[in-house]
């Protein structure tokens, strides 16, 4: 066994910048060395001992990759990630409750105020997030009338708290839920709804049993878009949430924070996790949509 090769291998293992592809190559190299040894007549039972003696990790890439990669992440990482996904989950759930009625109303109303409402819902799409964050900060701050009233009467503080973050995210991600669902409703033939009415079914029953099942794809894209958008939001959170670990520090803020402090490896952990997560979700959505379309076309 060439000792220099093992020496370089061990040195590579301690580098932690962009660890995932790195580990993959690392295990490739170990496997290459071991194969060479087996070909030269080494006993297979000897291989674990070879790894132990040279302080190389046991096991293969898949099972070993997870441990060092995540063990290097501390409690703060998990706290931040958990908070990010909890915020996105709660926001998406609230948006489902709020967005479907709003989308239903906007899709079917002939009210003269409809353009005004549509503009209001879409506003967060076109404004810099900091603008929304700024006004929410003003509104919720204990110095404002609303903030003071909430604090006094309901004992609710929305600035720099998780609750405020959820509220801000709901406002900010509302168009991402409303617009796909509304367009889904609008593209359904009107007579599906009318047929259901003439069959004696109430509006509620029609909504849940006829309309919503037929806009499943729009609903799914609404859910995914609002979730992903909340995970990715930065400006609103920074304005009204700040950077309180465990309370309002979400992944996007953490990345910015770590980069500011020149801890690139740490920032990379957050960033890479978000990339992987988003990619998986998007692939799942697109494959669902393809199957859905194929079924409708069949």
């Amino acid at each position: 066994m060439p000792l220099t090769a093992v020496f370089f291998l061990k040195r590579e293992f301690t580098l932690d910048l962009c660890p995932l592809p790195h580990y993959f190559l690392f295990f490739k190299k170990i496997a290459f060395l071991e194969n060479n040894m087996l070909r030269r007549g080494a006993c297979p039972a000897f291989l674990p001992r070879f790894r132990k003696r040279n302080h190389l990790p046991q096991g293969n890439f898949l099972c070993v990759m997870v441990t060092p990669y995540f063990s290097s992440m501390d409690a703060l990482f998990w706290e931040t990630m958990g908070l990010t996904f909890r915020l996105a989950g709660i926001t998406t759930a609230c948006l489902l409750l709020i967005g479907i009625p709003v989308a239903y109303f906007l899709a079917y109303t002939r009210h003269p105020l409809k353009p005004f409402l549509e503009a209001l819902v879409s506003l967060p799409l076109f404004l810099p997030p900091t603008v929304i964050g700024f006004y929410l900060l003003l509104a919720f701050s204990p110095n404002s009338a609303l903030g003071a009233w909430l604090q006094e009467h309901l004992n609710i503080r929305l600035v720099f708290t998780f609750g405020g973050l959820v509220l801000g995210s709901i406002v900010y991600s509302l168009p991402f839920m409303v617009q796909p669902v509304q367009s889904g409703f609008e593209h359904l033939p009107l007579n599906l709804k009318e047929a259901s009415y003439t069959l004696g079914k109430s509006r509620m029953e029609t909504l849940f049993r006829v309309l919503l099942p037929n806009v499943k794809a729009s609903l799914l894209s609404g859910i995914v878009l609002s979730f992903a958008h909340t995970v990715g939001e930065f400006g609103v959170v920074l304005m009204i949430g700040g950077n309180v670990p465990g309370v309002t520090r979400v992944a996007s803020i953490a990345i910015y924070d770590e980069v500011e402090a020149l801890r690139y490896a740490k920032a990379n952990e957050y960033a890479l996790t978000l990339v992987a997560f988003t990619l998986v979700i998007l692939i799942a959505v697109y494959s669902f949509n393809r199957r859905h379309h194929n079924r409708l076309r069949a």
């Binding site: 007579n191 009318e194 047929a195 009415y197 003439t198 004696g200 006829v210 499943k216």
Partner: peptide, 30 residues
């Protein structure tokens, strides 16, 4: 009276069957 409260049945020009239900489910829904 709303359509639900009138004793009417209506057949639409383009049928308006619910695409996510089978024939049996369409009938059972009514």
């Amino acid at each position: 009276l709303r359509p639900q409260e009138r004793q009417v049945g209506m057949v639409f020009q383009d049928y308006a069957l619910f695409p996510h239900m089978t024939v049996a489910q369409n009938l059972r829904y009514a």
